[in-house]
Design a protein around this nucleic acid. Structure first.
Lengths: 147, 147
DNA sequence: GCACGAAACTTGAACGATTCCAGAAAGGGG
DNA sequence: CCCCTTTCTGGAATCGTTCAAGTTTCGTGC
């Protein structure tokens, strides 16, 4: 298993000079077990173990973790923010227009596709984010059943 | 000039069976003159000519126009929704992390880059949206000045 | 040119996600 | 073990967006 354990999270936090706190460890654990969850789901998951954690703490923690790069924020248009543990390979996401489900998608062109814009207008680009919009297998099935 | 005129907007609206109303023409004009504006800016622009237009009307119009494909909604993570007149070439956007400025970027690979995910997990993908995150020329200048 | 039904607009309130604030608690270097 | 700073708690405020009721306007058919 390559799944990070509690102690790993502790090391990761210290590595970016963040204090090791219960809420933070709980959030990291929640994200390890449930990728692509939104803030509310994180809160529920965290409270399963630590009922006293405030929603504000979860917002603070998620912000601190995204700012330091431990966690990646995904925010498809029109949906609430979702989070996943940051992994080095820059993979992208397929988002279902119907139910909002998110799946990981590896880069088509090996690494960092389209990272170099043809004409960048002087922008200094550090990341290319790709969202594949479509319909997930389940919703495809359901909609075809209905026809 | 290839800029659409009022009469063109009228034809476009009729083409998608939408009624031709003053608010709709005003919104289209505003977007023609100011690409990448948010709802609030659209409202201001529209009210310059038609002071009585309600904010709700602008939301309705923008929704109707995006639903019918006349207008494209852009919603970078953490920012409010922005809109631009839909153009056929599927171009993408460079977004400044500092000031939120948006610039059009043509596809690096000719058309529709990365539209085919390597493993789509059964998703039926109809669009690949690419956001280039970085720093715009102005913010680059300002930050280097400060150092 | 006029009336009628449906679509669109106005006004105003409600809503959900996120942020701000002040005070209490807890991490961790000395 | 203490103190200072960071973090957390609780609650209110904010922002963008949407919902709802009633009125106006578009555009088709007479």
């Amino acid at each position: 298993m390559v799944v990070p354990m509690k102690s790993d999270f502790e090391a990761q936090l210290r590595a970016v000079s963040l204090r090791v706190t219960r809420p933070r460890l709980a959030v990291l654990s929640a994200l390890r077990d449930h990728p692509h969850v939104d803030t509310d789901a994180v809160l529920s998951l965290v409270r399963a173990d630590h009922p006293t954690v405030s929603h504000q703490a979860v917002y603070d923690v998620l912000r601190a973790l995204t700012d330091t790069g431990l966690v990646r924020r995904i925010q498809p248009a029109g949906a609430t923010a979702r989070y996943e543990l940051r992994v080095r390979d820059n993979h992208h996401h397929a988002v279902c227009r119907t139910c909002g489900a998110i799946a990981d998608v590896d880069c088509a062109d090996g690494l960092a596709p389209c990272l170099t814009a043809s004409d960048d207008h002087g922008f200094v680009i550090d990341e290319a984010e790709v969202v594949y919009w479509g319909t997930c297998p389940e919703c495809v099935t359901h909609s075809s059943e209905g026809s």
